[in-house]
């Protein structure tokens, strides 16, 4: 066979293989939209479940997920930013820094169920927080730390070194330089990183399984020390544990969860384009 023909065959094969990845994704989105769209009513989003969750809406699950996710990002964001500041602005090239980096890589690779176990043993039992929004939020906060640190560090790194030199040369201290010049200019990157990790943890189930999620709570949460319903766990429950579940509700729940994640991801993309136009140096 001539090399030309081999190349043609090989390229066609690669193209077909790429479709194998491409088509199922469209299939998933397609099936969710076609079967779940009917469920997307104000009533479904804004009312309580009825008839052993076989009817009514999923408001408590939506509120629960938003609450857990917002709490966890407000814990992880400041800590993650400061950690990135340390790595990018203060850390020297030494053994400690190597170990920190290795730990971050490892934290990123720890299975989510292990975070669930850790959250249960540490936050729920040892710190006596109980199965609660705050215990789940703390567990997820540790889990999203690696990605926040990495994205923040990249955006800190993109702030020109000359800005730091100018500020330091005016006799401004190191921390004030970081606070007044470096962080404000790294903000766009930090923000997009934060939203991206919100999107990721909003769909996490395993870490909140034993730390925050409740099978069924018939009211909206009153405080952070209560257990709550959460969208991903709710989807798991209604699709596996409850017989005779109306299809509309399961698909509707899955669609809302995916929409929540996708809206966040699109916000990131739009923000990125917006900031790319505004911040040029």
């Amino acid at each position: 066979m001539s090399p030309r023909i081999t190349q043609k065959i090989a390229f066609s094969l690669l193209f077909l293989v790429s479709l194998v990845v491409f088509i199922p994704v469209l299939f998933i989105i397609g099936i969710l939209v076609s079967k779940g769209a009917a469920a997307l009513t104000w009533e479904f989003i804004f009312s309580m479940p009825k008839d052993g969750m076989r009817g009514g809406g999923i408001l408590p699950a939506i509120v629960g997920t938003l609450l857990i996710v917002l709490c966890s990002i407000s814990i992880a964001l400041p800590v993650g930013i400061l950690a990135a500041v340390y790595l990018n602005e203060y850390a020297k090239d030494n053994l400690l820094t190597r170990i920190i980096q290795l730990s971050i890589v490892n934290l990123a690779g720890v299975p989510s169920i292990i975070y669930g176990l850790f959250g249960l043993a540490f936050f729920v039992i040892m710190l006596n927080l109980g199965v609660s929004v705050i215990a789940g939020a703390l567990t997820l906060a540790i889990m999203e730390l690696p990605s926040i640190i990495t994205t923040t560090r990249n955006s800190l790194n993109n702030v020109p070194a000359s800005f730091r030199e100018v500020s330091l040369s005016l006799g401004v201290s190191r921390w004030q330089t970081i606070r007044r010049v470096v962080l404000p200019n790294a903000l766009p990157g930090i923000m997009t990183g934060a939203i991206l990790s919100i999107a990721r943890i909003a769909g996490e189930t395993a870490p909140i399984l034993f730390t925050a999620a409740a099978f069924y709570v018939p009211h909206l949460p009153h405080s952070l020390s209560e257990q709550v319903m959460a969208l991903p766990y709710h989807l798991y429950v209604i699709s596996t544990q409850i017989p005779n579940m109306p299809e509309k509700i399961t698909y509707g729940t899955a669609l809302i969860l995916v929409l929540l994640v996708l809206i966040l991801s699109f916000t990131v993309i739009i923000l990125r384009i917006f900031f790319r136009k505004r911040y040029k140096w």
Binding site: S162, F163, V166
Partner: peptide, 10 residues
């Protein structure tokens, strides 16, 4: 110090 390139802060 005044640097080689004019570096205005944004």
């Amino acid at each position: 110090m005044v640097f080689a390139m004019p570096i205005s802060l944004p």
